[in-house]
Every structure is written in C-alpha cells, then in structure tokens.
Amino acid sequence: MVSPDILRAARDTLPNPENSVETIAKLLGVSVGTLYNHIPDLKELRAPRIPAPLEGTADDAVDPDGRDAGPQRQEP
C-alpha cells in the first residue's frame, strides 16, 4: 500500500521536467508501475506546460499610479 504522503510527494515532484519518473519512484521507494497505478493523471502532470498568451499589449499597460504606461511619444 502506498501512503498518501508518498503520493503527494510524487504529485508535487512530477511536473518538474528535471525529475524523471524513474528517479522519483526510486527516491520514494516505489516502482514506476506503482506511480502509474496510483496517479491516473501522471501523463498529464508530465506534459510540458505552455504558458497562456498574455492578454493585452504594452499599449494597454497602466503603471501603478494609474497613468497610461504605454509607449512614450517624444514631442518634436
């Protein structure tokens, strides 16, 4: 039986691409198969994360004082 603490540690460690499933299993003292059996979304946790596109542009930016922080235009 795998303890909830072991599963939590595995879930916390899996998203880091520097840690292989094999290394995590060895570190936690379980087999790779045990991780796959007890963490149904293991493949999704291992998938690369693609950040969502940022909304708006620099032209829409506002500085902390509430003033427009978009591109500055210089007067001729």
Rank of each mutant, 00 (worst) to 15 (best):
M1L: 05
V2K: 02
S3Q: 11
S3N: 13
S3F: 13
P4C: 04
P4S: 14
D5I: 10
D5V: 12
D5R: 09
I6S: 01
I6V: 15
R8P: 00
R8C: 08
R8D: 14
A9C: 13
A9S: 15
A9E: 14
A10F: 01
A10K: 03
R11G: 01
R11E: 13
D12F: 05
T13A: 15
P15Y: 10
P15N: 07
N16W: 06
N16P: 01
N16M: 05
N16A: 14
P17K: 05
E18C: 02
E18R: 13
E18I: 06
N19G: 02
N19K: 07
N19E: 08
N19A: 03
S20A: 10
E22H: 08
E22W: 02
T23V: 02
T23F: 02
T23M: 05
I24Q: 00
I24Y: 01
A25W: 03
A25D: 03
K26R: 14
L28P: 01
G29V: 07
G29C: 07
G29R: 07
V30M: 08
S31K: 07
S31G: 13
V32I: 14
V32H: 05
G33W: 02
G33D: 04
Y36S: 02
Y36G: 01
Y36V: 00
H38A: 09
I39N: 00
I39F: 00
P40Q: 10
P40F: 00
L42F: 06
K43Q: 14
E44G: 07
L45N: 03
L45K: 05
A47R: 13
R49L: 15
R49C: 11
I50Q: 15
I50F: 14
I50D: 11
P51M: 06
P51E: 08
P51R: 09
A52I: 04
P53E: 09
L54R: 14
E55Y: 12
G56T: 09
G56S: 08
G56K: 06
T57K: 13
T57I: 02
D59T: 09
D59I: 04
D60F: 03
A61P: 00
A61M: 11
V62P: 00
V62A: 02
V62H: 03
P64T: 06
P64H: 09
P64S: 13
G66W: 07
G66Q: 06
D68Y: 08
D68R: 02
D68S: 09
A69G: 06
P71M: 05
R73H: 11
R73V: 03
Q74S: 13
E75N: 10
E75Q: 12
